[in-house]
Design a protein around this nucleic acid. Structure first.
Ligand SMILES: [Mn+2]
Ligand SMILES: [Mn+2]
Ligand SMILES: [Zn+2]
Ligand SMILES: [Zn+2]
Lengths: 149, 149
DNA sequence: TTCTACTTGCAATTGAGTTGCAAAAGCATT
DNA sequence: AATGCTTTTGCAACTCAATTGCAAGTAGAA
């Protein structure tokens, strides 16, 4: 499968191989996009990115699920009901998304708040905790400026 | 509009009046249900509760929105994409849902973790924070027991 | 009782995400 | 470079939460 040649191209191949995933066009594209974008992306945002290199919607979903299952990306369900996926910065060995995320209600962009690790949470005895997520929402700096034009 | 006579009946009327909402059957029913249930309820859970007293799905949605707008309930969007609403315990004067919530991935019940207030979160300069939510997910004690039967 | 603004029911619609299946492609092997 | 097995892809259909428009009904004030 043909690919555009971009900065993380070799890196994505190496990452996919390392976790035992086949190197396919959609996976390289999605992982690449998540690495380049400085912030988590929704399925919808991933669909429209380049005019060449078009994949089916379902294929993008399945690529995301594969990357998630192998721990290459983390995901957050926003207060808007939309799931966004972020690649882990490759310099940090294991940052499995255990930080808060900010969601702008106006532009819909999500940002990792990597400086805000999630707190320990006390749960009732017998409860099994499998994960947690925190979403802070409001207006990003850009949108806050426009709001009071 | 006819109503079942239950424990919080007078209380709901008083609450609705206090915030300037008209006393309608659907609002009294929804608020009552949220007060009685010890945990937040989804729209779907609210629909099936009694056989008498049937309201349209959309009416239940709109009742929830009204209660939310007036601050009588708080809401959380679960990692399963379903929004759940919880009444504020009336003894606490203002507990606007600023605590973590647990969501069981098996039975779908959500619980308020009122002992875990949400932490302060640092955001980039210029950002406007309007709210935040934290969802801890896994298995509730009941479901955890059944999982290894 | 009357009036009016607000609320409800119904039908249609949006949009995220999932499922089943046949065709296509990755990759290890010959 | 061809073989063969397994995984992945594209397509169409589907599920399900939530929203919208509008006409009919109702709460609450006068
Ligand atoms: Mn993140
Ligand atoms: Mn709560
Ligand atoms: Zn924004
Ligand atoms: Zn459970």
């Amino acid at each position: 499968m043909k690919r555009g040649n971009s900065s993380h191209d070799a890196e994505t191949a190496e990452l996919l191989r390392r976790v035992g995933l086949r190197l396919t066009g959609s996976r390289r594209y999605v992982l690449e996009a998540l690495l380049q974008s400085g912030h988590p992306l929704s399925h919808q945002e991933l669909l429209g990115r380049r005019d060449s290199l078009r994949f089916d919607r379902v294929t993008i979903y399945r690529a995301l699920l594969a990357l998630k299952r192998k721990g290459l990306v983390h995901d957050v369900k926003g207060t808007d009901g939309i799931r966004r996926f972020g690649a882990h910065p490759t310099d940090l060995p294991h940052c499995p998304g255990n930080h808060a995320h900010f969601l702008c209600r106006r532009c819909g962009r999500m940002f990792c708040l990597t400086e805000s690790p999630l707190p320990w949470v006390e749960v009732p005895a017998g409860t099994t905790v499998e994960g947690k997520q925190m979403v802070v929402y409001g207006l990003c700096p850009q949108c806050a400026r426009r709001e009071n034009d």
